[in-house]
Write a protein that binds this DNA or RNA. Structure first.
Lengths: 361, 361
DNA sequence: GCGATTGCTGGAACCGTATCCCATGGGTTA
DNA sequence: TAACCCATGGGATACGGTTCCAGCAATCGC
């Protein structure tokens, strides 16, 4: 019955429709619904009745245009089907929900161009923060672009959070939530070395990914600590998937046999490696030991259950959101010098059943 | 230098700022940016220069308020860490991106209340569609609520899509994208029966979930077809996780030993079951065969690789989005009677290495 | 009992963008 | 050369809320 639109229109009810039908002003309806201003019980009842009759919900776009609106976090993820990332996303999402925030998920598919497009899209959405998941690329140009993103978001009142990657260099307005990647790798390699292994096949991951680099250098450091020479011929880079684990072990068995353990960059890689070992007639851990990294559910579903490094992914997600929320509530300007913008969470080895002393001979 | 806001303000630039600085009207800037109206090359250049100087991006909220705006799909998922759901989400997200649509992910954590809250939240966002993932609950009240959601969304110009669950009863404005769940279970059970198994432990999943019900009835039908009596004592309901798989097998081994195969409701359940079998000193498939359902990556990472039912999850996601997009472009009113609103995708058995004929004796 | 508070309600000015409609100017045509 | 048309640019308004400000009644204080 409103005057401005044709009857029978399928469009959703507006606050004006509610006001009209309840015989009150638009302002009153708004106040009843947001509840941040005293309203008489009588008025509230009348309005709520109409709201429920009309099945009215406020228009979020209009609301955020006018200044109100729910804060939103955007989660940018390489691949939603990766278990580790999914856990971070779960952490962020859970913490966001707890605070009444909304969360948006976008996937980049490992494509830097798409990542760029998504960050801009999120900027348009006016999100409170953009959470970027996963290892960074070790290109100068990529790092520069990230710095630009950070400044750009910052200028728009938003904020960039990097999760699971090293912080940006220089004075960049971004928060980093990281884990002790290098330390985990050190501990994992030490575990193998102290069990007596000396010839270890290392599958760190993609050479250009910072994550893989840290894992490799952690292992390296462990070898040094044990005074064991590090054989570069036993390092094989490749993607973080089980196929790579399989083919790498297959190739190593042919080219550089004699290793007694496999240090995989990821649980998934370890799964592939395990298959290849088994296919070659080798038993795990009797003939060859094997360890992973990440401690995703898969690790304990394999047979034997995988010894691996636990990374607190979900916790990282929660921490990332908390960092953003704190900063947002902690007043307008960012407290410079506080430097609470680089958080590092601990990792630890989870011992299961995939490691045994090397066979002698 | 705008008059209306204090200098040094951190707020993002508006279209007015751009217009002012470029010495043109707001309307012109809008036209340059949306590109749906002829603009002189000179004007375009001037505007674009300022846009890049100011690092301006349009405000998505304002845009969608004014009628423009990017269509958005909301994906509601029980648990983002579930591999099957993640694949559907990936399918939806990919197809959405391809069309320039945005996608939003929310998780319900198996909580019907939260599901309700989320659907309302999405309604506020004015999403083009809400995609609900996963099995439904077999409560009358729950079904009624879904029907209300569907009508509510429909009235607001949005649309409900149910993925991986049976369609709603009655004339409800919702689209269903389903897979041949019962048929897959039938085929899987038949596979076991034709291998000679007669005493089969069945772990269909949670009794109140429609998904589990279909899988159970499919198995049942296969038993009938083979003229094999169905032993209800060998059916154990429980959640879709590996822990249930483990404890169920453990219990069955104690209470109803003698089964020669396990028909698990899910690959993850199968993984747990496999562990329990192994822990009891039984070999797979030599002593006991085992099959799963879903064909998530885990299935081929287990040892032995799991024979399972392939469900085209990612494809379902794509199909779901296409259905929404078609309907949206296909004119205002929904074509009644066309009934293209219930799509069923096929499933098939993937034979790997976890099934062997039963041991005799 | 009367003026001053207090408590609630309505009117109106935005929020940032898209678009309808009109004005203007140069070029084309009769 | 006059009349007209087409290509562009600008002004104004709508989108659906929130919130400041003013108004009015009821209540309070003395």
């Amino acid at each position: 019955m409103t005057q401005r639109k044709p009857p029978g229109d399928t469009a959703r009810a507006t606050i004006r429709d509610v006001a009209e039908q309840a015989g009150v002003s638009v302002a009153s309806v708004s106040r009843v619904l947001s509840g941040n201003y005293p309203v008489s019980e009588n008025l509230r009842r009348r309005v709520m009745k109409v709201v429920s009759d009309l099945d009215y919900v406020t228009n979020a776009h209009a609301r955020s245009l006018a200044g109100g609106g729910t804060p939103t976090v955007a989660i940018l993820i390489n691949n939603i089907t990766g278990a580790a990332f999914a856990h971070v996303a779960k952490g962020v999402e859970g913490a966001a929900t707890l605070r009444g925030w909304l969360s948006l998920v976008g996937t980049t598919g490992d494509d830097p161009e798409r990542e760029l497009a998504l960050v801009n899209l999120m900027r348009q959405q006016g999100v409170a923060a953009v959470v970027l998941l996963g290892g960074a690329y070790d290109y100068d140009e990529y790092q520069l672009r990230m710095a630009r993103f950070a400044r750009s978001l910052d200028a728009a009142g938003s904020h960039l959070v990097l999760v699971g990657r090293p912080p940006l260099e220089g004075d960049v307005p971004a928060t980093t939530v990281d884990y002790d990647n290098e330390g985990g790798a050190y501990a994992m390699a030490s575990h193998l070395l102290s069990a007596g292994h000396r010839r270890i096949l290392v599958l760190p991951g993609p050479a250009e990914l910072t994550t893989a680099q840290s894992r490799l250098s952690g292992a390296w450091r462990a070898f040094e600590a044990y005074g064991v020479p590090f054989d570069r011929g036993l390092v094989r880079h490749g993607p973080y998937d089980d196929e790579h684990g399989y083919t790498a072990v297959e190739a190593a068995l042919r080219v550089t046999p004699g290793f007694t353990a496999v240090l995989a960059g990821t649980d998934v890689v370890a799964a592939g490696a395990m298959q290849a070992l088994r296919a070659a007639g080798l038993r795990v851990p009797d003939d060859v030991s094997i360890v992973g990294y990440d401690d995703i559910p898969l690790a304990s579903q394999l047979t034997p259950q995988l010894t691996t490094v636990h990374v607190p992914y979900e916790e990282m997600g929660r921490v990332a959101l908390r960092a953003v929320a704190d900063r947002r509530e902690g007043g307008a300007g960012r407290r410079k010098g506080t430097d609470g913008d680089h958080l590092v969470l601990g990792t630890h080895v989870v011992v299961r059943h995939s490691v045994a002393p090397p066979r002698r001979g």
